[in-house]
Computed example of a mutant assay.
Amino acid sequence: MEYTFGHGEDEEFADGIGFNSVMLAHSMELSDDFTQIELDNDEIVSVFTLITLYKEELEFKKHNGATALLERFDQYGVEEIVKVGRQNVCI
């Protein structure tokens, strides 16, 4: 399950930052021990991560799916920690 949320039509979160959307996704780095928490009543709480996206990455995800985008992130060594100025994996 991956969802994306934009910030207006091509509008950046802040001037010069480059990111205009985020993707809610399962962690690329943490194991199920940290992202699947079992409560006392046997219910499971899932922990997700927010990954900041550039406009081109959002468009790539829309056309190719979240799995393809996450594979590109893996190829380029993109981590879940937000790094302003990180490489755009779709240009």
Rank of each mutant, 00 (worst) to 15 (best):
residue 43 E to T: 10
residue 20 N to R: 12
residue 14 A to F: 05
residue 66 A to V: 09
residue 81 I to P: 00
residue 22 V to G: 03
residue 44 I to M: 12
residue 67 T to Y: 03
residue 46 S to A: 05
residue 31 S to Y: 06
residue 83 K to Y: 05
residue 14 A to W: 04
residue 31 S to R: 13
residue 70 L to W: 06
residue 9 E to T: 10
residue 11 E to P: 00
residue 14 A to S: 10
residue 61 K to V: 02
residue 88 N to Y: 03
residue 37 I to P: 06
residue 22 V to L: 10
residue 29 E to R: 01
residue 36 Q to S: 15
residue 79 E to G: 15
residue 91 I to S: 10
residue 14 A to H: 02
residue 31 S to P: 15
residue 33 D to G: 07
residue 81 I to E: 12
residue 67 T to L: 08
residue 34 F to E: 15
residue 70 L to I: 09
residue 47 V to P: 03
residue 31 S to C: 12
residue 51 I to R: 14
residue 49 T to S: 15
residue 16 G to M: 04
residue 17 I to Q: 10
residue 89 V to A: 07
residue 71 E to K: 11
residue 84 V to G: 08
residue 87 Q to F: 08
residue 28 M to R: 15
residue 75 Q to L: 11
residue 76 Y to M: 04
residue 17 I to Y: 07
residue 61 K to C: 10
residue 42 D to Q: 12
residue 86 R to F: 04
residue 39 L to F: 12
residue 46 S to H: 12
residue 59 E to H: 04
residue 40 D to I: 11
residue 11 E to G: 03
residue 80 E to T: 13
residue 88 N to M: 07
residue 88 N to G: 07
residue 90 C to K: 00
residue 25 A to C: 13
residue 70 L to K: 15
residue 36 Q to A: 14
residue 38 E to T: 15
residue 84 V to N: 09
residue 74 D to Y: 06
residue 16 G to H: 03
residue 2 E to Y: 06
residue 36 Q to D: 14
residue 56 E to C: 10
residue 11 E to Y: 03
residue 33 D to K: 03
residue 75 Q to H: 09
residue 48 F to T: 07
residue 88 N to H: 07
residue 55 K to W: 01
residue 35 T to S: 08
residue 1 M to I: 10
residue 34 F to P: 00
residue 14 A to C: 07
residue 26 H to V: 06
residue 52 T to C: 14
residue 90 C to G: 02
residue 39 L to H: 14
residue 34 F to H: 13
residue 48 F to L: 10
residue 27 S to G: 09
residue 10 D to E: 11
residue 8 G to C: 05
residue 32 D to A: 12
residue 91 I to P: 12
residue 33 D to Y: 06
residue 5 F to I: 15
residue 55 K to T: 03
residue 71 E to G: 00
residue 64 N to F: 14
residue 82 V to S: 09
residue 47 V to R: 08
residue 41 N to Q: 03
residue 63 H to N: 15
residue 81 I to S: 09
residue 21 S to F: 02
residue 56 E to A: 11
residue 17 I to C: 15
residue 74 D to W: 02
residue 9 E to F: 11
residue 63 H to R: 14
residue 52 T to G: 09
residue 54 Y to G: 01
residue 20 N to V: 08
residue 68 A to S: 14
residue 67 T to N: 09
residue 12 E to N: 06
residue 44 I to G: 05
residue 51 I to H: 14
residue 63 H to M: 13
residue 87 Q to R: 14
residue 23 M to N: 05
residue 35 T to W: 01
residue 20 N to K: 12
residue 83 K to D: 12
residue 59 E to N: 09
residue 43 E to L: 09
residue 6 G to F: 01
residue 85 G to R: 07
residue 59 E to P: 00
residue 38 E to G: 02
residue 17 I to P: 01
residue 90 C to H: 01
residue 42 D to C: 05
residue 84 V to D: 05
residue 88 N to E: 03
residue 30 L to Y: 11
residue 36 Q to W: 11
residue 5 F to W: 11
residue 53 L to W: 00
residue 27 S to K: 04
residue 80 E to W: 12
residue 88 N to R: 08
residue 69 L to E: 00
residue 73 F to Y: 15
residue 24 L to P: 01
residue 66 A to L: 10
residue 47 V to N: 07
residue 12 E to L: 03
residue 28 M to E: 11
residue 80 E to R: 13
residue 15 D to T: 06
residue 89 V to S: 05
residue 26 H to F: 08
